[in-house]
Design a protein around this nucleic acid. Structure first.
Length: 649
RNA sequence: GCCUUUGUAGCUCAGAGGUAGAGCACUUCCUUGGUAAGGAAGAGGUCGCGGGUUCAAUUCCCGCCAAAGGCUCCA
């Protein structure tokens, strides 16, 4: 009896009954067989050495495939566990899955505390075990046996996991002396795991539940070649160098003060200049798109948030309300701008002819994040949103969505964020009880979002059940220069607030209708967005955004006066330039300007002063030679135009 | 909030149970120089804050604050 195996290229090969994916690989080439980590059989990832189920399709997975990596890392997690058990007998094990970059294992070490000083020993043990080329043996076990095994080991975590499994679907994997409850799949043996590193240790609640015991989580990563591990470690170093907290300090962008409070960034002049530039950029773009600016105060009566529903939902996690000398009067720091904007909409009767009404505000909001949540500029307690609320008729949703997408893409282009996709978050397919708003409106909005995204040619994926209870949304996922993913730019449809604030407009039928509200923030928050921009550009901001576009470097103090004249000239053509008048040699001034990542250095000495030119040096590029100030102006204009190309409409 | 780690000059970091050090930055002077660090001198720290142990604490212990890596949640 033979079985037919269909390969991805469509060829069909014949094998003996009981053949494995590894046999398939071997029949193609030995080299391929060496690289096979697991295999996709009829679309399901399985062990490479597990017998094929009969006629099937087989896709061999190697390190090049995400699933292959996942197999490698999953097996590495088991290897980590084996090493930990060998070093710390009696350790209990939670779960140990592969993740986007590597793997982790949650363990309970009892009273033993593990720190980074212990990593080396664990890595050495892992290497020792991996080199033994231990086979991963899969075994299906009856539930009773599985329970007995982990009762013996006194591992309550595994027992709890088994408790949730059906008899007949339980499998164990064993490599060397370590046996784990596991669905798999795994590598044929431990030998492909050539280079590994324990990266960090952290606390993690069992099953992510704050009320349950906190386990020790060990993060690690592994590679088939030492060189790849080294490269990965270099990438981590690069990420560290680009860390916006570090660059923020080095480039004098922002700071924090214990006296002011955690999570409350203080913007220094250069950082504030970045913010201003982003705000002006967005204001200009929004004006073109028919937005109007509004302004609202930083506090409002608590009742406002009771009306909006935010108090009930988030009141506990907000700043405590502010009381006044007046008995019973309470204000709150505003955690969002939408209720205020709703009241602006409601301030007078609205006609369908007024819609869409697009209210925009760079509104600073305050939210009490838990202390452990704070992180540089990406997670703060006070931040400024490039917020706007579009009040429109249900039939206008799609058109507005298209326009907002344009705005988001404009931002991405202007900052060189060219790798992105959009997540369309829709209702749960089955359970619709948790959503408010009529079925008809939801369908209209969901279709509108899908169509708008398609019209703009966005690369999208749909997530069912990810919509907010008050409406569907579109979120942009952006990859930065180091390939890290960020969620930026969100557009949300909201049926809830217009309902709660009883917003109405008069339709062409002279009847009252409820408007649909769209929340949108292309930057999200200026703080978080700048953090991403800093890390994406490594502090080398696009010319249009750079706080200082040029620095004038006189060769000696004799030319400071000429430098000032040039400075005035540049100011007149809106080029932001400063002068380094220090009593230092030119080499020193250049070095400092390079370190400060100033885009252009303009050198002025005897030659230039005589010829009425400036010698231009570009950051990271070197000397561009002498040119007239006017030529330099054109160069700057060209560069800005190029970096905003397509961004100007 | 919880777990692990950390907190010494503006920055990066060394150090030790007997009340502190380097480099850079800063100030002054010399130098007036051509594409990534010129030279000299000087100033600068209650060693995160508060308690405890000790003859003596910045060092050891406890508490708090802040930061880092995670967990959880997110309008």
């Amino acid at each position: 009896m033979k079985i037919n195996v269909t390969l991805p290229d469509g060829t069909i090969r014949e094998y003996e009954q009981g053949a494995t994916a590894m046999d398939v690989a071997l029949s193609i080439s030995e080299g391929l067989a060496r690289n096979v980590l697991s295999a996709k059989v009829n679309g399901e990832v399985r062990d490479a050495n597990r017998p094929l189920p009969g006629d099937c399709t087989v896709q061999l997975l190697t390190w090049k495939d995400d699933e292959g990596k996942a197999t490698m890392w999953h097996s590495s997690a088991h290897l980590l566990a084996e090493a930990v058990e060998a070093l710390y007998p009696g350790t209990k094990f939670g779960i140990g899955p592969p993740i986007e970059n590597g793997f982790y294992y949650d363990i309970d070490l009892g009273d033993k505390v593990i720190g980074d000083g212990d990593f080396k020993a664990i890595e050495d043990k892992m290497k020792e075990l991996a080199a033994k080329k231990e086979t991963f043996v899969r075994r299906e076990v009856p539930k009773a046996e599985a329970i007995a095994y982990f009762k013996e080991k006194d591992d309550e975590y595994k027992l709890e996991l088994i408790d949730g499994l059906e008899d007949g679907t339980i499998s164990f994997y064993t490599q060397g002396n370590f046996t784990d409850l596991c669905r798999g799949p795994h590598l044929p043996d431990t030998s492909p795991i050539k280079a590994m590193k324990v990266l960090s240790v952290a606390g993690a609640y069992w099953r992510g539940d704050e009320t349950r015991k906190q386990l020790t989580r060990l993060y690690g990563i592994s590679f088939p070649k030492q060189k790849e591990l080294d490269e990965y470690l270099v990438l981590l170093e690069e990420a560290k160098k680009r860390d916006h907290r570090k660059l923020g300090k080095e480039l004098d962008l922002f700071t924090f003060s214990e006296k002011v409070g955690a999570g409350l960034p203080l913007w220094l002049p250069k950082g504030a200049a970045l913010r201003e530039r982003l705000i002006n950029f967005m204001k200009t773009a929004q004006e073109k798109s028919g937005y109007v600016q509004v302004a609202t105060p930083h506090i409002a009566l608590k009742q406002l948030y009771i009306t909006s529903g935010h108090y009930e939902k988030y009141g506990q996690d907000s700043f405590r309300s502010i009381s006044t000398p007046h008995e019973g009067e309470e204000f709150m720091l505003k955690p969002m701008n939408c209720p205020h904007h709703c009241e602006i909409f409601a301030s007078r009767p609205r006609s369908y002819k007024d819609l869409p009404l697009r209210l925009a505000e760079f509104g600073t909001v305050y939210r009490y994040e838990q202390s452990g949540e704070l992180h540089g500029l990406t997670r703060v307690r006070g931040f400024t949103q490039d917020d706007a609320h579009l009040f429109c008729r249900p039939d206008q949703v799609k058109e507005e969505f298209v326009k907002v997408i344009d705005l988001v893409l404009l931002v991405f282009r202007a900052l060189g964020l060219n790798d992105y996709e959009a997540q369309i978050s829709l209702r749960d397919k089955v359970d619709r009880s948790k959503y408010i708003g009529s079925d008809e409106n939801w369908e209209k909005a969901e279709t509108a979002i899908i169509e708008a995204a398609a019209e703009k040619g966005l690369k999208t994926f749909i997530e069912y059940g990810e919509a907010a209870f008050y409406g569907p949304k579109l979120d942009f996922m952006v990859k930065d220069a180091l390939g890290r993913r960020w969620q930026l730019g969100t557009i949300q449809v909201d049926y809830n607030l217009p309902e709660r604030f009883e917003l109405e407009y008069v339709g062409s039928d002279n009847a009252r209708h409820r408007p649909v509200m769209i929340h949108r923030a292309p930057f999200g928050s200026l703080e978080r967005f700048l953090a991403v921009v800093i890390e994406h550009t490594a502090g080398r901001f696009p010319l249009w955004l750079a706080p200082e576009q040029a620095i004038i470097l006189p060769i000696s103090e004799k030319f400071n006066e000429t430098a000032h004249r040039v400075g005035e000239l540049l100011k007149e053509c809106d080029i932001r330039a400063v002068i380094d008048e220090r009593n230092e040699k030119i080499g020193r001034k250049i070095r400092d300007a390079e370190m400060a990542k100033t885009p252009f250095m303009l050198i002025i000495g005897e030659k230039e002063a005589g010829a009425g030119t400036i010698s231009v040096r570009e950051h990271g590029q070197g000397d561009l030679g002498p040119m007239s100030p006017d030529q330099f102006r054109m160069l700057v204009e060209e560069r800005i135009k190029a970096s905003l190309s397509g961004a100007v409409h």
